[in-house]
Computed example of a mutant assay.
Amino acid sequence: MTASDSFEGHDPLGLILIILAALVIVPTLAVYGFSTLARQGIRHSGTRVVLRGFAALAAGAAVAVYAWGVVQLALMVGPEQSSACQDAVGGARAASIDRYEGSYLPLQLNCHVPDDGMYSADVIPGYVNPGALGLVLTAAVLAVSSGLAPERRTGGINSAKEASG
């Protein structure tokens, strides 16, 4: 294993599968979230429905942000990867880099220098990991809250018909 091999830190098939999965998951969650909110309108839907719709949108956004980081990582090949690692470890230790190690959680590329440890290369935008984490936590809180919220309607088409009939 040498530092000049491309994708040494991350499996290229794994990166491609994550990107392909995100291409399906993000639009699915977006359509579900928006259709849930639009079915009767936010003002006329119960609290559970609104929370569930926003949970789906937050989850979709989390997947999209994470996938964007994966795309940035997948574009780092050969010379770009080596250059990022050299910048991370500094000029004096750049020649000593012996391998790359990838991490999916948090998403990052690490460069190993013998007897000096691991250095994280700045190949993933700084907002990706905290942004994805924040959106995942938001989605989880909204999803749990939708399960705990009381089911009540604040109006809508059906309740207007019942009141007039």
Rank of each mutant, 00 (worst) to 15 (best):
G46R: 07
P12H: 07
I18Y: 11
E8G: 14
S45K: 06
G41K: 02
Q40E: 00
I18D: 11
V31W: 06
I18M: 10
I25C: 06
T47E: 02
R43S: 14
I18H: 10
A21E: 08
A22G: 10
G33S: 01
I19C: 04
G14V: 12
I25R: 03
A38R: 01
V26I: 12
L23Q: 02
G41E: 04
V31N: 01
L37K: 03
T28R: 10
R43Q: 11
R39F: 06
I19P: 08
I19A: 04
Q40R: 08
P27T: 01
L15Y: 03
R39G: 05
I19F: 07
T28Y: 09
R43E: 11
R43N: 10
P12R: 10
E8V: 12
G9E: 10
L15R: 03
V31D: 00
L29F: 05
H44D: 10
L37R: 04
H10T: 08
H44N: 14
A21G: 15
R43Y: 04
P12Q: 13
L15H: 04
L23R: 00
S35V: 01
T36H: 01
A22D: 07
I42S: 01
H10K: 13
L20S: 13
D11R: 09
I42M: 05
R43G: 09
E8D: 13
Q40V: 00
A38T: 00
V26H: 10
H10S: 15
S45L: 03
E8Y: 09
L15D: 10
I16C: 14
Q40K: 00
P12T: 09
Y32V: 07
P27G: 10
T36K: 05
G14I: 06
L37N: 03
V26R: 03
T28E: 02
I18L: 12
A22K: 04
E8W: 03
L13C: 13
I19M: 05
H10L: 15
L29P: 02
L17W: 09
E8H: 12
I16N: 13
S35H: 02
L20H: 12
L37F: 02
I25A: 12
G14K: 07
L20G: 15
L17M: 12
V24D: 07
F34S: 06
G46W: 07
F34D: 03
L20T: 13
S45Q: 02
H44G: 13
Q40S: 05
V26A: 14
S35Y: 02
E8C: 13
L13E: 15
L23G: 12
G41F: 01
V31A: 08
I25W: 09
R39Q: 10
G9I: 08
V26L: 11
Y32Q: 08
Y32L: 14
G14L: 14
Y32N: 05
G14A: 15
L15M: 14
R39D: 09
